[in-house]
Amino acid sequence: MGCWFSKQLEHTPGYEEPAVLAAETAFTVGEVEALYELFKKISYSIIKDGLIHKEEFQLALFKNSKKHNLFADRVFDLFDIKRNGVIEFGEFVRSLSVFHPNTSQDEKIAFAFRLYDLRSTGFIEREELKELVLALLHESDLYLSDDIVDMIVDQTYKLADTNSDGKIDPIEWKEFVKKNPSLLKIMTLPYLMDITTAFPSFIMNSEVDE
């Protein structure tokens, strides 16, 4: 028999058991439960339905629900595994697991590839890379002439597109990242090592006796 307190808890739509998610990801059960606290906080911040909508994701990232950003859009789309416009708890945990310090480099490399493969063609195309560079410059209020942007993109392409077919494929991407490991820095969130202390309120609500 569970305690009376736990029976009063209502879960968000599409909730999945922490034990199931822990088995599939780099997180422990306790960490998944801590992530649930974070998930609830974000998913009830604007539209109170227990699902993370784009504007809630933007609010959590930028403290501004109206801030459009190509990179945040891409991350949101990859987290939204079912492609139904919202992030459910299971999607949130599975996606964040890629950013766990203990997750394999290969998984991180593959995720980063998908992030930059804007049109999901299976390649990072020159136009996509240019679009990403322009988005970054715009976001940073920087202006560079088109020539300079082309030069940066061409230079990078010369290094990454080793078979010179005009596109970067997953194998070339992997080789390129191995030579430039700093590119993967954004794929690891040290916070994820210590989420149970980051969200201690979980301790009060825990349903699991550990």
Partner: peptide, 25 residues
């Protein structure tokens, strides 16, 4: 010359990719 830095290096500085802010209280 910083203008010719690796394009991926450049875009990895985007705020939109810094998921750490999700964890800020």
């Amino acid at each position: 010359r910083p203008a010719l830095m690796n394009a991926f290096e450049l875009i990895s500085t985007s705020q939109g990719l810094n998921l750490g802010t999700l964890f800020e209280k």
